[in-house]
Design a protein around this nucleic acid. Structure first.
Length: 580
RNA sequence: GUCCCAUUAGCUCAGUUGGAUAGAGCAACGCCCUUCUAAGGCGUGUGUCGGGGGUUCGAAUCUCUCAUGGGACACCA
């Protein structure tokens, strides 16, 4: 258990002994540092609950806490705020437990098996800046959930079938009508005919999309090809497999740059074997109803305060659609992995849709009744007009371009002592990714934000590069110190004290981040911890300090902050290079 | 039209279980490198928390209402 949690539990016990039934108490970093390190506001809550005077309760609590020598300067202020500071001995003891392992500062949770669906990459479509959030957020939440003791299975869930497949095939058909994939009488192998690159694909889709929008006949052709592909048309399937291979290689490459990894690289097509079973289950439960030629499930409930449209499961032409495959995928995941929780991360526009899917799957018993289905929507990345990028528009900046743009900036500032061109490239890329990810994590999960390339190219102040730079500097200091023995003996002044107070607070931050499924608090915390260290660093000459006990204490602090930074950056999916 | 979500400093955003004096970064100006990586540190200031009502010891936070912007609303994904 973390040190702060331990203290909170002790305080809780003592308050209970006073006769108040508290469930938990919160000790938070004081917003009045002049009055104490931490504050406890629970006296006022208890006063309401028990109809007593809040100041009296606070005074009683103060009296009990004063018997604990970990605390000092306990005082009651205002309507009943309890301010409390920690003794140097307690801070030193705490720091030494972190010196053993910074993971001692993380409180594990009840282990769950969690299935996560994020990424949102579509085959044959370029990964653009709109895909950044899903990848970053999903990856970080996965890592956070694991650090907290959960087992997590992550699936990229490629969009590998659907209208875009028909569009791309129809376009290639126009480009290369002579290819064997389109020869209905051909029954040999399709070994030769394929020269399309990922760059080509980046142009093919937008072109096809535009053409189909303008021409209803073309759109009908696209629908037909999509249906044929789904029904196993030999040539289309062979062609689509080749397109997929090219596209997946490219997508994996970019996810790799972003430190985004999946346990499963499955796609919508992988659920096809389960579709008949799911349809049968829906029929058995008498959930399917015919409407305007399509088969739908009613998911409205009486307590709904707004219209809840039925979910279309089979199109009037007999083909499946997104929802069908979603249900089958859900069923397959349940059957194969039996998770306690399933998390979906997409932008918030899909909220209603997932509500429909969740309701339908519960109604049809596609998932266990005790399996929790969660939809964690995130804010959209908007264009300069304040409106979300349209995924289908070709004019959105692609992710690769964004990364190389930021990389160009980070390269300029690289230490000239790093001469090996390969190393320079590698480091510049890591810093660029850090800049991108960190900027993406700063707003709260559900906040929409305006995409401005300049925001990501910012390399000073509250940014990823600042955190890397500072952590690398700590590392470099520790290397120069050249010692294996670390122990804290004393607190010197407010600046090292402040760092330790921040370290104490980490479990609260982690806990909130997990509860809210947002990384912004961790991002803010990293900046706060790091800047408190940098202040200390500027004020003290560590390596030349003559008092050995002081020097050792300072080095220990440096080591703990460095390790904490590395731990948190790793949760965010940000790598720390050796130098920069 | 119905239902969601936003509106906080010049800009971008924190502040989401109601708490003390609403905070950061950027931008602007000044200072600090013979000394552990200056992508650093220190200092200087700005708010009708979109408007108006309500709830209470206490509201940026809860509630009602209005305004503005955005989103969703069955055979796209």
């Amino acid at each position: 258990m973390s040190y702060i949690k331990l203290i909170e539990e002790d305080i809780k016990d003592k308050i209970r002994e006073l006769g108040y039934a508290v469930e938990k108490i919160d000790m938070t970093v004081s917003n009045r540092p002049d009055l104490g390190d931490f504050q406890i506001n629970d006296a006022m809550k208890l006063a309401k609950q028990y109809g007593e005077n809040p100041r009296d309760i606070a005074m009683k609590i103060k009296e009990v806490l004063e018997r604990d020598d970990r605390f000092k300067n306990i005082n009651v202020a205002g309507p009943g705020f309890i301010n409390i500071s920690l003794s140097d001995r307690a801070l030193i003891e705490f720091l030494n437990t972190l010196n053993l392992d910074v993971y001692n500062n993380i409180d594990k949770r009840d282990a769950k098996r969690i299935f996560m669906d994020y990424g949102g990459a579509n085959i044959a479509k370029t990964l653009h800046v709109g895909h950044l959030r899903s990848a970053n957020l999903g990856e970080a939440l996965k890592r956070l959930a694991r650090v907290l003791g959960n087992e997590v299975i992550a699936d990229v869930h490629f969009g590998d079938i659907g209208r875009q497949s028909g569009m791309v095939i129809s376009e290639i058909k126009r480009m290369h009508p002579d290819w064997k994939y389109f020869d209905e009488s051909y029954d040999g192998d399709y070994d030769d005919d394929f020269t399309i690159t990922s760059e080509d694909l980046g142009e093919i889709y937008p072109r096809a999309n535009l053409a189909s929008k303008e021409d209803e006949e073309r759109m009908e052709e696209v629908r037909q090809i999509t249906a044929d592909l789904e029904n196993g048309h030999r040539g289309y399937c062979a062609l689509w497999e080749k397109i997929k291979a090219v596209s997946i290689a490219e997508i994996k490459n970019i996810y790799l740059k972003l430190n985004t990894n999946f346990d499963l690289w499955e796609g919508e097509m992988d659920c096809y074997p389960y579709i008949p079973e799911v349809i049968k289950k829906l029929k058995d439960c008498h959930l399917l109803r015919e409407s305007e030629g399509a088969l739908v499930i009613d998911v409205a409930e009486e307590e709904d305060n707004s219209p809840m449209p039925p979910l279309v499961v089979i199109k009037s032409n007999g083909a499946t659609l997104y929802a069908t495959r979603e249900l089958a995928t859900l069923y397959s995941r349940m059957k194969r992995f039996n998770p306690d929780e399933i998390w979906y991360l997409t932008d918030m526009r899909q909220g209603l849709y997932f509500e429909q899917v969740f309701r339908a799957s519960k109604k049809a018993n596609l998932v266990n009744s005790d399996t929790l289905l969660y939809y964690f929507g995130f804010g959209t990345m908007n264009g300069p007009d304040g409106k979300p990028f349209k995924t289908r528009d070709g004019d959105v900046m692609d992710l690769k371009t964004l990364i190389s743009m930021v990389e160009e900036e980070t390269t300029k500032r690289l230490n000239p002592n790093i001469t090996d061109p390969r190393e320079r490239k590698e480091i510049a890329e890591k810093i660029a990714i850090a800049a991108l990810k960190y900027a993406d994590f700063l707003p709260f999960r559900t906040t929409d934000y305006v995409f401005e390339p300049s925001k990501f190219a910012d390399l000073e102040g509250k940014t990823g590069p600042y955190l890397l730079y500072s952590t690398i500097r700590m590392n470099s200091l520790l290397k120069k110190a050249d010692t294996q023995i670390f122990a804290s003996h004393k607190i010197s002044d407010d600046s090292d004290r402040d760092i330790i107070i921040n370290l104490l607070n980490l479990p609260n931050v982690i806990n909130n981040a997990y509860e809210m499924k947002s990384l912004n608090e961790i991002a803010e915390y990293l900046y706060k911890l790091t800047s408190s260290y940098n202040k200390f660093y500027a004020e003290h000459r560590i390596l030349t300090e003559e008092d050995e006990e002081v020097k050792s204490s300072w080095l220990t602090l440096t080591k703990v902050v460095k390790s904490t930074n590395e731990m948190l950056l790793d949760i965010l999916g940000i790598e720390v290079p050796e130098k920069m």
